[in-house]
């Protein structure tokens, strides 16, 4: 689906990246822990999170994350918005909680970027 579809499904507000609404996305990762995002998220995935500090954008940049979905009605501060703009990373804000956001996207065909983590030897 496209980022426009994601926006519609989540009744979301586009904060940054209105020019990227035709971008195709297939997978997602959701977490409030950037340590986990860094360990598991894959390039080209959506990042669903409740965190809004600039490190979220830095993390997304490092991992080539397609777009950030900020959940639970949070609004990113200006410094985060500016950085996302500079790095061309779209931000969408939704009022749905993380569980509901993930569920709505999954129902429409978005899957996890990893299904299960590998057990460590």
């Amino acid at each position: 689906m496209t980022l426009q579809d994601v926006k519609d499904i989540l009744d979301a507000e586009m904060i940054v990246g209105g020019d990227k609404l035709d971008m195709e996305v297939k997978t997602a990762f959701g977490a409030d822990l950037m340590s986990d995002v860094l360990a598991y998220a894959k390039a080209g995935s959506l990042l669903l999170t409740g965190l809004t500090n600039p490190q979220v954008i830095r993390t997304a940049n490092v991992l080539d994350i397609a777009a950030i979905i900020v959940v639970r009605g949070k609004k990113p501060p200006q410094e985060t918005v500016n950085l996302a703009d500079e790095m061309h990373i779209p931000i969408l804000c939704t009022k749905y909680i993380l569980f509901e956001t993930a569920g709505r996207l999954y129902q429409k065909g978005i899957v996890g970027c990893v299904e299960k983590v590998q057990s460590k030897s």
Partner: peptide, 27 residues
Amino acid sequence: QEGYSTANDRIREMGFGAGMGLCNIKN
């Protein structure tokens, strides 16, 4: 070791301090 961390609250607030960084670097 995965999970070992001495991170303070400030670091954790930003979403870090899960004790995964060094393992991730190694991987």
